[in-house]
Write a protein that binds this DNA or RNA. Structure first.
Lengths: 175, 175
DNA sequence: CTATTGTGTCTAACATTTAGACACTATTAT
DNA sequence: ATAATAGTGTCTAAATGTTAGACACAATAG
């Protein structure tokens, strides 16, 4: 089976890390583990990590998930290209919403189902591989601009930061 | 106060629609309501709707939220430019995750807090207004391609569907 | 150590983008 | 209804960007 590069799992419970490692070794070429999130940034400088599985509570007695959100945001800033999947025991709807709105690729609750976990992670990796060609990205964005300006080409061109004439040309070539 | 165009609220409970209308009239120029989701597409042809607030359960006795996911997907296909906020009483973490991963802009549980609802909806509308200029979109995407190819310009260029030379030029201009 | 792959640079043909102009057609406000 | 405004389709000519192809050289992998 084709594997998916390097995964980094971060959780303060080393038992969980062992379980994750055992379960995910078949799916990733390499599974790194870390029980202190503040060492994460240093590690990412040294290793080429393709995906991060992140717990959300590290300080004893605090289960708000705020730490997880903090590290997620930090990762999004410094490594926007690495997908982050959140994994937490103290999950509720608002926390899941907050995690996903902050850019997490998925949100999984403990205890997890191994098969489902593998499925979700491989799903993320598959999506991660895809990269739209520049011209498709462009035409989608142009479509969005036209939608937002209700078809007004002049305004759409201004939004896009291009000349009306250029937008006109691009539209002609697209159709 | 500046208002945010037209909102469409879809819920089978007309009492809820009335409550929503009452609460959101101050924030939107126009609040449309609909108690049957299958009439939504027809309505969207006639009215220029800027945002949709969508319940997730319409058939009596079914509370899985599947109907909401279905209509969300349909909307994403036909009107990817209209943000959809989900609003449901039968919420759990997996459903929230599914909703957001299917492109919902936010996920709110019933009973809702009026102030929070208004805050979340205006937040979505504010984000909706922003549109990146084409050149920023492009340079971000190029950055992504370079990250994914670990700095290999030839491979990045191929991913992007442009010449290596062109990528080279663009990078020179960017820096 | 030797293929292979990637980089930096060049050329010359080709294409796109730009600012500016013009007549014409909606839209809006009065 | 009419005048003012904003948007469209089209044109030029100059400036800029893109392309394929070539070449020497550096880095990497077998």
């Amino acid at each position: 089976m084709e594997k998916y590069g390097t995964l980094l799992a971060v959780d303060d419970n080393t038992g969980i890390l062992t379980a994750l490692k055992y379960c995910l070794n078949e799916v990733f070429d390499k599974v790194l583990t870390l029980d202190e999130p503040d060492k994460m940034m240093a590690l990412l400088q040294q290793e080429a990590v393709d995906m991060i599985l992140l717990d959300m509570n590290f300080s004893l007695g605090v289960n708000s998930g705020q730490e997880g959100i903090f590290w997620l945001q930090t990762l999004q800033k410094r490594h926007p290209d690495i997908p982050v999947v959140l994994l937490t025991a103290y999950a509720d709807v608002p926390l899941a919403v907050k995690g996903l709105k902050n850019g997490a690729s998925d949100f999984i609750t403990k205890p997890w189902d191994n098969e489902e976990l593998v499925h979700k992670l491989t799903d993320v990796m598959k999506k991660q591989r895809e990269l739209e060609p520049l011209d498709k990205l462009e035409s989608d964005h142009i479509q969005r601009a036209l939608d937002k300006s209700h078809g007004n080409m002049s305004k759409a061109a201004e939004m896009l930061g291009i000349t009306r004439q250029t937008l006109y040309n691009k539209l002609k070539k697209m159709s």
